[in-house]
Design a protein around this nucleic acid. Structure first.
Length: 483
RNA sequence: CGGGGCGUGGCGCAGUCGGCUAGCGCGCUGCGUUUGGGACGCAGAGGUCGUCGGUUCAAGUCCGACCGCCCCGACCA
């Protein structure tokens, strides 16, 4: 790298983001436009995200399976809204083995259709329900403009697909998975999120209702970090997913789908990163602790490395993800900066003084400068590290929440919305109509994010009117600049 | 697709009133000295100047076309 560090956020947030992704070794541009190469460090982060989500899916009775990458074009065309929504961004295969194909194959942009087709064969009776399936896969959407992790032509994700006997069960599932996403975001990624329902305009093509978790990024823009859809009987009808109920009558199933993608990595970068680079929450960080040995000569090296080895072994033994940076050609100072840029939550230094005093120097990534440093005894280091990692995890969530809450504003009218539109999120009564949302987006660049579930529980006042157009309000909605 | 910027060793750039062996910083290799907040010295390796065509005694430099990338807007997890 020619220059050290990353572009400051205040100078150019978007440049900062790209710098962080490239310089912290998460990913790189690929030779194909809009595609990326996820490097080992970035992939390990994704694997940790994946493991935590997968654990939660299994715990709620879901099973993993795998469906094909290629989908017959005719499948997509069965659901009118679905095909209309996706056709502009499809990659289509027309030649196979040198021969023009009878029917073009779509590279999956999502799998509702193939899975719908399959479900129709798997489901016969109410005894087969609920059917709870998830798949980890790559998908392709031909986007006009791409950004590393946030929107790439090909991305990795998880898509859950379920079928149920009743609308209520499907709705329950839809919200259960939304809560799992929230739980992951808050407790693993340390990002507070707002759960809400998408407006008609923003919902998934083919869904009856879409739900979202929205997170606030460092520039106060919103990012949809996960979605969950109640698909009603839309896909059941076109793919003939039917079951025989207890009264021996044929019924259409109620289906759901839900997904989280590698975009989550982008969320983590932008919700926590600072001018020094990445900051990773300990629970999902590929490296939780980096240990930098310090010595001047062979004699010191021998003494230091002896202690380094002992400390490293003890931490590794209790599954702490520790990395010893024993590169000889770099100075400790360089390593400190390097690992800070790469977001490692906790740094340990062991030098001659520590060998003599039986201590270890620690530096927290979440607290900059001297404040975040301390010298601790080698004795009891496991407990110390575990405690600190836990504190860092909670500290990061607290910081993100304080920032987020400081930038949420309730507004009474359109003027109020305009005032906060490019510097935070605006909560207001909203009619939910397409015209209104289009107007707001054109005039303020802010788009409707969601009707937050928590804030729309109570009966709304009879005279609640849209803050922008004055028509009867559907509920309270957040508007914000969004990725 | 519209607006803006840019293509020169791995990365960041200079060189562009045409002129001789195409430079600089970082990185890389070797050796030595260094090492508690981005070390230093010496010796090296590495470039069909985005592509194609034109003008010229001579093109990184001028002209034309094309290709690609990045940023800002219209579609989306």
């Amino acid at each position: 790298m020619s220059q050290q560090g990353v572009t400051p956020q205040s100078e150019d947030y978007s440049k900062w983001y790209t710098d962080v992704v490239l310089k912290s070794n998460l990913a790189d541009y690929a030779p194909v436009r809009g595609c990326m190469i996820i490097k080992p460090y970035g992939y390990e982060l994704w694997e940790n995200i994946k493991a935590e989500l997968d654990k939660r899916f299994k715990a709620t009775g879901h099973q993993n399976a795998y469906f094909p990458l290629f989908i017959p074009m005719s499948f997509l065309q069965k659901e009118a809204e679905h095909v209309e929504g996706f056709s502009p961004e499809l990659a289509v295969v027309t030649i196979g083995g040198g021969e023009k194909l009878e029917e073009p194959l779509v590279v999956r942009p999502t799998s509702e259709t193939v899975i719908g087709h399959t479900f129709s064969q798997w489901v016969q009776s109410y005894r087969d329900l609920p059917l709870l399936i998830n798949q980890w896969a790559n998908v392709v959407r031909w986007e006009m403009r791409t950004r590393l992790f946030l929107r790439t032509t090909e991305f990795l994700w998880q898509e859950g697909h379920t079928a149920h006997e009743t609308y209520e069960e499907a709705q329950e599932e839809t919200l259960r998975m939304l809560e799992i996403y929230e739980d992951f975001a808050v407790n693993e990624a340390a990002i507070p999120v707002i759960k809400g329902r998408k407006s008609n305009q923003e919902k998934f093509a083919g869904a009856d209702a879409s739900y979202t978790i929205e997170g606030m990024m460092g520039n106060k823009w919103a990012l949809q970090m996960g979605t969950s859809h109640n698909l009603g009987q839309n896909f059941a009808r076109v793919f003939d997913i039917k079951y025989l109920d207890k009264k021996n009558e044929q019924q259409y199933c109620w289906t759901t789908s839900w997904g989280v993608s590698t975009r989550m990595v982008g969320a983590i970068i932008m919700a926590h990163g600072d001018d020094k680079g990445l900051r990773l929450p300990p629970r999902i960080a590929p490296i939780q602790v980096v240990l930098v040995p310090i010595y001047k000569n062979e004699e010191e090296k021998a003494r230091v490395m002896h202690v380094v080895g002992r400390v490293a072994d003890s931490l590794l033994a209790v599954r702490i993800r520790l990395h010893v940076d024993d590169r000889e050609e770099l100075t400790p100072g360089f390593k400190f900066n390097d690992w800070e840029m790469r977001g490692v939550p906790l740094r340990m230094e062991i030098g001659p003084k520590d060998v003599t005093n039986e201590t270890i120097a620690l530096a927290r990534r979440d607290i900059p400068g001297k404040e975040g440093k301390q010298i601790v005894p080698q004795e009891g280091i496991i407990a110390t590290v575990m405690r600190l990692l836990n504190e860092i995890q909670h500290g990061m969530l607290r910081q993100a929440r304080t920032f987020r809450d400081a930038n949420l504003h309730e507004v009474e009218d359109y003027e109020g919305l305009k005032r906060v539109a490019d510097d935070g999120w605006a909560l207001m009564w909203h009619c939910g109509t397409a015209e209104c949302e289009r107007r707001v987006q054109e005039e303020t660049k802010a788009s409707s994010r969601c009707f937050p579930l928590d804030l729309n529980k109570e009966e709304k006042p009879k005279d609640a009117r849209c803050a922008v157009c004055g028509k009867p309000a559907q509920g309270k909605a957040y508007f914000a600049r969004a990725y």
